[in-house]
Design a binder for these strands. Structure first.
Length: 361
DNA sequence: CACGTGACGGTTGAG
DNA sequence: CCCTCAACCGTCACG
């Protein structure tokens, strides 16, 4: 919608807010993927969450959350925002209900429910409630005599049962959603692209847009290096850091389109932009944030980046060793609080070309 | 001091 | 279209 317009508006007015650490964020919206990636990267390098928080100027709660999610799901992407959960009354389920009803017109809703479970049409997590079944009988099936619409359309793509439980379907990417993840250009993918590319105009852009120049401007702030760096970070995020990011993704996503998403970044953000027409609408454009999965759905994210397991660093070839991004979560250990040595820092910086000030506090 | 957690105010998008 | 609702977001404050 507003796409460009929005952008402009933004420029004028500032969309973001500044947190206690001086970082810029957009309330209600996820952090840009670049920052998310950065958080994970730094953590992988052994940098403590508190330091990451200070360095990137992201609240520790957020850092904690992102890292926890990453360790758990292997994805750095935010969850799908908005929309509704996948309906339990999928065409397949409706069809089954209809079949049961046809076979036994006197069947009760609760009996249907039991049968859905017994037949494996649904599992305990996605089986419709009795009331839902009643509604289906009444509204969708109603007259058995008539061919239901469903039938006609019979869309039923092979639908697997949803996994409401796990919004992140990361597991094998098999999930219905998962499947889609990979391929469909649509959503998630796009989002990813978007995020990177367009999302991140450039630090400067961002700052300007947000009107927070002050923060970033060292002179203005007089702050410790931190500030300055911050700028860099954002900038770097956009650019330099990307490579790494990309690495990250690369890893994870192995199968997913993910590659695209992040990879590009290193090469150049702009490339992918087109893909997503979508996000434009989002503030992201403005924010710089990536819509990530946003637009989309449930599944998309699930797969998200990839997770550790498969991860396999497919692309990693290029990646700097430093980033062993994703190790299997099990390994768990997100690094011990060990103080990362400066050494590590150096490594990191070199990798990303960032200078990490380690929050020298 | 580090960090996990939940309240809070916000956005999003399917239905 | 507009509204509702439920999901997610990041920040903040508390423990």
């Amino acid at each position: 919608m507003v796409i460009n317009a929005q952008y402009f508006n933004i420029t004028e007015q500032t969309y973001g807010e500044v947190n206690q650490l001086g970082g810029v964020f957009v309330n209600g919206r996820p952090l840009p993927n670049a920052i998310r990636i950065r958080i994970v990267e730094l953590a992988q390098l052994g940098i403590r969450p508190c330091d990451i928080s200070r360095q990137l100027r992201v609240s520790h709660g957020c850092v904690s959350k992102i890292l926890a999610r990453y360790n758990e799901t292997g994805s750095i992407l935010p969850g799908a925002i908005g929309g509704s959960k996948p309906r339990v009354t999928t065409p397949n389920v409706v069809k089954s209900i209809r079949d049961y009803k046809q076979a036994d017109p006197g069947i009760f809703a609760w009996e249907i429910r039991d049968r859905l479970l017994a037949d494996g049409v649904c599992d305990k997590y996605n089986v419709p409630s009795v009331s839902s079944i009643s509604r289906i009988l009444r509204n969708k099936i109603g007259n058995l005599s008539q061919p239901s619409q469903y039938e006609g359309s019979k869309p039923s793509p092979p639908q697997l049962p949803y996994n409401p439980v796990y919004p992140y379907s990361y597991p094998n990417a098999i999930s219905p959603t998962g499947a889609k993840l990979g391929n469909p250009p649509g959503v998630s993918v796009t989002a990813g692209h978007v995020s990177l590319s367009r999302a991140w105009p450039s630090v400067h852009t961002v700052s300007n847009i947000l009107g927070i120049r002050a923060f970033m401007d060292p002179s203005a702030i007089a702050g410790p290096d931190g500030y300055q760096q911050k700028m860099e970070d954002w900038a770097s995020v956009n650019r330099a850091s990307f490579p790494s990011a990309h690495a990250v993704n690369g890893i994870d996503k192995s199968h997913m389109e993910a590659d695209i998403k992040y990879n590009q970044s290193s090469s150049n953000l702009s490339g992918y932009v087109p893909a997503c027409a979508y996000s434009a609408t989002n503030q992201y454009g403005v924010y710089g944030g990536p819509p990530g999965n946003y637009g989309h759905h449930w599944q998309s994210q699930g797969a998200s980046l990839a997770h550790p397991n498969n991860g396999a660093m497919t692309h990693s070839s290029n990646i700097h060793t430093a980033m062993t991004f994703k190790r299997p979560p099990d390994v768990g250990d997100r690094k011990p609080p060990s103080p990362l040595s400066k050494h590590q820092h150096e490594a990191l910086s070199s990798v990303h070309a960032l200078s990490l000030p380690t929050t020298a506090s």
